[in-house]
Simulated assay, not measured.
Amino acid sequence: MTAATGHHFARPGNRFWPVLHLSGFTPRLLKPSEQGELLSYGLGITNVVARATARADELTAQEYREGGRLLGAKVERLRPRWLAVVGVTAYRAAFDDRKARVGPQERTIGASRVWVLPNPSGLNAHWTAATMAEEFGRLREAARDA
């Protein structure tokens, strides 16, 4: 769906946009087609791996590693205060950190701190929208206090 629309987290039922709003990052629920508005809130959005798939497990370890390398270079160039990676499995594969957990990471990329967020896919059923919003909110508070 993302590839077809050109918008991140575009599949109906994906909880990213509702969770982003519930956590307080956006003042209203945005549609995937409104992703350009994120910049006005001081937020950006990109992919770890540029190839669209229906499921994350369709990506290879090599694609994740290369995506992590490219994302790291982008973060070093743009120097955001925080990099949030959605999905602990993607983060582990992209940044070769098998022990990573959801939450703030010890690793930095340049001066940018790193936070791993839960994957909002409906396939990630052990995280509810409410518990994901709590974790996204923890990042929002940390970013505000930094």
Rank of each mutant, 00 (worst) to 15 (best):
T2Q: 11
T2F: 00
A3W: 10
A4V: 13
A4Q: 13
A4K: 12
T5S: 14
G6H: 01
H7Y: 15
H7C: 15
H7T: 11
H8E: 10
F9C: 09
F9Y: 14
A10E: 06
R11C: 01
R11F: 05
P12I: 00
G13I: 05
G13L: 08
N14L: 06
N14C: 14
F16N: 04
F16A: 12
P18C: 03
L20S: 03
L20Y: 01
H21R: 09
L22F: 10
L22M: 14
L22Q: 15
G24Q: 09
F25P: 00
F25R: 01
P27M: 01
P27A: 04
R28K: 11
R28S: 08
R28W: 05
L30P: 03
L30A: 04
L30T: 03
L30R: 06
K31C: 01
K31A: 12
P32W: 08
P32I: 05
Q35T: 06
Q35C: 08
E37N: 03
L38G: 07
Y41T: 01
Y41G: 06
G42T: 10
L43D: 09
G44V: 09
G44Q: 08
T46G: 14
N47M: 01
N47W: 03
R51E: 12
A52N: 11
A52L: 00
T53L: 04
A54D: 15
R55Q: 13
R55L: 12
R55H: 15
A56L: 13
D57V: 03
D57Q: 10
E58V: 00
E58T: 00
L59N: 03
T60D: 05
T60H: 02
T60A: 05
Q62E: 15
E63D: 02
E63S: 03
E63L: 03
Y64K: 04
Y64E: 02
R65Y: 01
E66N: 08
G68T: 07
R69T: 11
R69S: 13
L70G: 02
L71W: 08
L71N: 07
V75Q: 02
E76V: 08
R77D: 12
R77M: 12
L78E: 15
L78V: 13
W82V: 06
L83D: 04
L83M: 09
A84C: 11
A84H: 07
V85Q: 03
V85K: 05
G87A: 08
V88R: 14
V88N: 14
Y91S: 09
Y91A: 05
R92A: 12
R92H: 06
A93F: 01
D97F: 02
R98C: 04
R101E: 14
V102F: 04
V102D: 05
V102C: 08
G103R: 07
P104T: 10
P104C: 02
E106A: 13
E106M: 10
T108Q: 14
S112V: 02
R113G: 10
V114S: 05
V114T: 07
L117P: 04
N119Q: 02
P120V: 07
P120S: 09
P120I: 10
S121C: 11
S121V: 04
S121Y: 06
G122L: 13
G122A: 15
G122Y: 11
L123S: 11
L123A: 14
H126S: 12
T128M: 07
A129Q: 14
T131Y: 00
M132E: 14
A133P: 10
E135R: 15
F136W: 11
F136D: 02
G137Q: 02
R138D: 01
L139W: 07
L139S: 09
E141N: 04
A142R: 08
A142N: 00
A142T: 00
D145T: 14
A146Q: 04
